[in-house]
């Protein structure tokens, strides 16, 4: 199982702040593809993925137990 977090626009789109997925291992790119399919309008081309609180590359592999977060363009400050 992996945990995925949704924030901001994505939290509103999915209607949830987080959920558990039983799909590990998978790559970051595969996770983004899954999200786009599951939640139309997700907009994966503008979204980064953090794995265990660090930005990950598309080819990085997510393992069971990892905590992931979808990071849409940030706008703090």
């Amino acid at each position: 199982m992996i945990t995925v977090h949704y924030f901001a626009r994505l939290r509103e789109l999915t209607g949830k702040g987080e959920e558990s997925l039983d799909r590990a291992p998978l790559t970051v790119e595969e996770l983004l593809d899954w999200a786009e399919t599951t939640y139309p309008g997700f907009g994966k081309d503008t979204i980064h993925v953090a794995v265990n609180e660090e930005y990950a590359r598309k080819e990085d592999v997510i393992q069971a137990g990892d905590v992931c977060a979808f990071i849409p363009p940030v706008s703090g400050g």
């Binding site: 901001a8 940030v74 706008s75 703090g76």
Partner: peptide, 18 residues
């Protein structure tokens, strides 16, 4: 830094992101 801003106006609202 993973922080997001939503602007709320008189006639709507939007999550802001570069």
């Amino acid at each position: 830094v993973p922080i997001w801003k939503k602007e709320i106006w008189e006639d709507g609202e939007e999550w802001i992101g570069a």
